[in-house]
Simulated scan of single mutants.
Amino acid sequence: MSPVDVAGLVGVALILVAYAGAALGKVDPERPLSLCCNLIGACLILWSLLAGDFNLSATVMEGAWALVALAGLLRWALRRKAEG
Rank of each mutant, 00 (worst) to 15 (best):
M1G: 06
S2W: 00
S2K: 09
V6Y: 06
A7G: 06
G8S: 05
L9Q: 04
L9C: 01
V10M: 08
G11N: 00
V12F: 03
V12H: 13
A13W: 09
A13G: 04
L14M: 05
L14E: 01
I15T: 10
L16G: 02
Y19E: 01
A20E: 00
G21D: 02
G21Q: 09
A22E: 14
A22P: 11
A23V: 10
A23I: 09
G25H: 08
V27E: 11
E30N: 13
E30P: 13
R31L: 15
L33W: 13
L33E: 09
S34L: 00
S34K: 10
C36G: 01
N38R: 12
L39D: 02
I40M: 11
I40N: 02
I40Y: 05
G41A: 03
A42R: 01
A42S: 15
C43Y: 05
L44R: 00
I45C: 14
W47A: 08
W47F: 12
W47P: 00
W47H: 11
L49D: 09
L50G: 00
A51E: 15
G52F: 14
D53Q: 13
F54S: 06
F54R: 07
N55A: 06
L56F: 05
L56S: 13
L56R: 11
A58S: 08
A58Y: 11
T59Q: 07
V60I: 15
V60G: 00
M61G: 00
A64D: 02
W65A: 14
W65L: 09
A66C: 14
A69W: 07
L70S: 12
G72K: 07
G72P: 09
L73I: 13
L73R: 07
R75H: 14
R75L: 06
A77C: 05
A77T: 05
R79V: 07
R79A: 15
R80P: 02
K81N: 13
A82F: 07
A82V: 05
E83D: 08
E83P: 06
G84Q: 15
G84I: 05
G84K: 10
G84P: 10
